[in-house]
Simulated scan of single mutants.
Amino acid sequence: MEGRAVLLVNLGSPDSPSVTDVRRYLNQFLMDKYVIDLPYLLRRLIVSGFVLPHRPKQSAEAYASIWWPEGSPLKVLTGRLTEQLANKTHAVCVRYAMRYGSPSIEQELVNLASRVDVTEVLVIPLYPHYAMSTVKTCVVELERIVRDQEIRLPVYVHPVFYEDDAYIDALYKVAKPFLQASYDHLLFSYHGVPERHIRKDDPTGTYCLSSADCCQQNSAVHSTCYRAQVFKTTEAFVAKAGIEKNKYSVAFQSRLGKAKWLEPYTSKQLVSLADQGVKKLLVMCPAFVSDCLETLEEIAIQGEEIFKAAGGESLTLIPCLNDHDAWTDVLASWWQKSPAKLSRVKV
């Protein structure tokens, strides 16, 4: 695609594991109305009154436990992915941005739009599944930037890819060496979202979470249903890997606050699996394409402690796609997609 630049967008990370930087990052992240979807004054009260006084110190300690010499694992891995993609395409330019933190989407998009050799931009949100707190907020931010900065060149967004054959194949190639070793059970741990988010993203307002098997039925609602999409990813992966039904399960991690989130919760599932006699546990986190705090600390450190305390022997985290060749090949193939298969950002 002559003149096309690519902008990869990941969630974000603090600039350092210091309490100050973590507090700044959490404030930006949690004040997004698509993350904590409450009226502004109530959201401000919760974030400033209940989260920021104590959470930054706790989170800073967690970040410090997984921080690399080069910096944040999420940003380092996204940077490596960007470099490899640039080497595998003829894109005019390949850059990355973070929805929260730096480099910002606005900074990178404005820079790309100012280049005379760029005629259009393909934005690839690095989220396999649709959710208001990931894909929707990214698209809304792109629309704001295009409008406020008066960007006239076409900006396209790649759709979610939760059951894309190439994505599933890349997941399998990363996991295959771990699946070939001896293990008792494979746990798919997806990032959780509040149940109210699922209902808000339901265009009918009545379908999602209306029955125990709503995600297993065919419905157009699934195009914006995070829960249905993670089940599709799981089904496609286990079919590809040939994993028996009794040897895997699905759970949801990273709860925040007291609202009801998608269940079962990963922390409780780890205990349940150990109680059932699982000794050697594999965990993979397909909602993330890059290893980050939620995988390296929440699963590989906290999760292992929970599992072993409940009687398990070993918990092995299967890495995310990161900068694996199979994944960069997938992204390289997407770079060539026709605009007809993409969504143009509204001007």
Score class of each variant (00 low, 15 high):
residue 212 A to C: 05
residue 212 A to Y: 09
residue 212 A to Q: 13
residue 215 C to I: 10
residue 216 Q to H: 14
residue 216 Q to G: 01
residue 216 Q to P: 00
residue 219 S to K: 11
residue 219 S to W: 08
residue 220 A to H: 11
residue 221 V to G: 03
residue 221 V to M: 09
residue 222 H to D: 02
residue 222 H to V: 04
residue 224 T to A: 11
residue 225 C to V: 04
residue 226 Y to G: 04
residue 228 A to V: 06
residue 228 A to P: 01
residue 228 A to N: 04
residue 228 A to W: 08
residue 230 V to Q: 03
residue 231 F to S: 02
residue 232 K to A: 14
residue 232 K to R: 15
residue 232 K to Q: 14
residue 232 K to P: 00
residue 233 T to Q: 07
residue 233 T to L: 03
residue 234 T to L: 04
residue 236 A to E: 08
residue 237 F to L: 14
residue 239 A to N: 12
residue 239 A to L: 11
residue 241 A to S: 05
residue 242 G to E: 08
residue 244 E to A: 15
residue 244 E to R: 13
residue 246 N to R: 14
residue 247 K to P: 00
residue 247 K to E: 09
residue 248 Y to Q: 07
residue 249 S to A: 14
residue 249 S to G: 14
residue 250 V to C: 11
residue 250 V to S: 07
residue 252 F to A: 08
residue 252 F to P: 01
residue 254 S to V: 03
residue 254 S to W: 09
residue 254 S to C: 12
residue 256 L to R: 12
residue 257 G to T: 05
residue 257 G to Q: 12
residue 257 G to P: 07
residue 259 A to P: 00
residue 260 K to P: 01
residue 261 W to K: 02
residue 262 L to K: 04
residue 264 P to I: 05
residue 265 Y to P: 02
residue 266 T to P: 04
residue 268 K to M: 13
residue 268 K to N: 14
residue 268 K to R: 13
residue 269 Q to L: 11
residue 269 Q to I: 02
residue 271 V to M: 03
residue 273 L to I: 08
residue 273 L to H: 05
residue 274 A to E: 07
residue 277 G to K: 01
residue 277 G to A: 09
residue 277 G to E: 11
residue 278 V to D: 08
residue 281 L to I: 05
residue 282 L to E: 12
residue 284 M to A: 09
residue 284 M to S: 12
residue 285 C to F: 11
residue 285 C to P: 01
residue 287 A to E: 03
residue 287 A to K: 02
residue 288 F to Y: 15
residue 290 S to C: 14
residue 292 C to R: 01
residue 294 E to S: 07
residue 294 E to A: 08
residue 295 T to W: 03
residue 300 A to H: 08
residue 300 A to F: 00
residue 301 I to M: 15
residue 301 I to A: 10
residue 302 Q to E: 15
residue 302 Q to R: 09
residue 303 G to Y: 08
residue 303 G to L: 11
residue 303 G to D: 11
residue 304 E to H: 09
residue 304 E to K: 12
residue 306 I to Y: 06
residue 306 I to N: 02
residue 307 F to H: 04
residue 308 K to A: 09
residue 308 K to P: 06
residue 309 A to M: 10
residue 311 G to W: 04
residue 311 G to V: 07
residue 312 G to T: 06
residue 313 E to K: 12
residue 313 E to S: 12
residue 313 E to V: 01
residue 314 S to W: 00
residue 315 L to T: 06
residue 317 L to F: 04
residue 318 I to H: 07
residue 318 I to R: 06
residue 318 I to M: 07
residue 321 L to W: 04
residue 321 L to Y: 02
residue 322 N to K: 02
residue 323 D to N: 13
residue 325 D to G: 02
residue 326 A to Q: 08
residue 326 A to C: 13
residue 327 W to V: 01
residue 330 V to R: 05
residue 330 V to E: 03
residue 333 S to V: 01
residue 333 S to T: 12
residue 337 K to Y: 09
residue 337 K to L: 14
residue 337 K to D: 15
residue 337 K to R: 15
residue 339 P to M: 08
residue 339 P to I: 00
residue 339 P to N: 12
